[in-house]
Amino acid sequence: MSLEILDQLEEKIKQAVETIQLLQLEIEEKNESIQQLEQQKSDMQQANDALRHENDQLKHEHANWQERLRSLLGKIDNV
């Protein structure tokens, strides 16, 4: 009887070890996914920053062109 109990205990231990190993693999996969998502987030933040910078430059350029056009129109009005 005790041999049968030991066999059952051994089987449960084997199952527990297999379950732990599977869970460890899942954790590793999740960690890799998290790292990939963090990299994507970082890349998107950099792209967003670059677009904001470009947008600011274009706004500044637009304002300069408007000022130049106003100046030219003012000169035409004076003629």
Results as ranks from 00 to 15, higher is better:
R52P: 09
R70A: 11
R52K: 12
E67A: 14
D7Q: 12
S42G: 09
G74E: 05
E11S: 07
D56I: 03
E10D: 15
I76R: 02
K59G: 01
L6T: 12
Q57E: 14
H60V: 08
L58H: 01
Q36L: 09
K41M: 14
K41Q: 14
N55K: 14
A50T: 03
I5K: 01
I27K: 08
Q46Y: 06
N78G: 01
E4M: 03
Q8K: 14
Q21Y: 09
L23M: 11
E4R: 00
N78Q: 12
E4I: 11
L69A: 05
L58A: 05
N78R: 04
L6H: 08
L9M: 08
A50L: 08
Q15V: 13
A47H: 10
N78S: 11
L69C: 09
D77G: 02
N64T: 07
I13F: 06
V79N: 06
S2P: 03
L25A: 13
D56F: 07
A50Y: 01
L69M: 02
Q35H: 06
A47F: 04
K59S: 10
H53P: 03
H62A: 13
I34T: 00
V79P: 03
I34M: 02
D49P: 00
E32I: 12
Q8D: 15
A16Q: 14
E61V: 04
K14L: 14
L69K: 07
H62G: 11
E67F: 03
L23R: 00
D49K: 09
L9G: 04
H53Y: 10
L58V: 06
L22N: 00
E4H: 02
Q36N: 08
N55M: 15
L6I: 15
Q39K: 07
Q8H: 14
I13C: 03
G74Y: 01
K41W: 05
L72Q: 12
V79C: 14
I20M: 08
R70F: 02
L6P: 06
E26A: 07
I13W: 06
Q40W: 10
R52S: 09
S71R: 02
S71V: 05
E29V: 05
Q21D: 07
D43A: 07
E28V: 11
E61F: 03
E29I: 06
L3H: 00
Q35C: 05
A16M: 14
Q35K: 04
E10S: 10
L51T: 07
T19N: 13
L51P: 00
V17R: 04
Q40T: 08
H53I: 06
E28S: 11
N55D: 15
N78P: 01
L37Y: 05
D77F: 03
E38V: 04
K12V: 02
Q39S: 08
N78F: 01
V79Q: 08
K30E: 10
E38C: 03
Q35M: 06
H60P: 03
A47Y: 06
S2L: 15
L25M: 15
E54M: 09
R68G: 03
K12S: 11
Q45C: 04
M44W: 13
Q46N: 10
H60M: 14
T19D: 15
I34R: 05
E28K: 07
L73C: 14
L22R: 10
H53Q: 11
Q46W: 06
E4T: 07
I27L: 03
D49A: 08
L73R: 11
A50G: 02
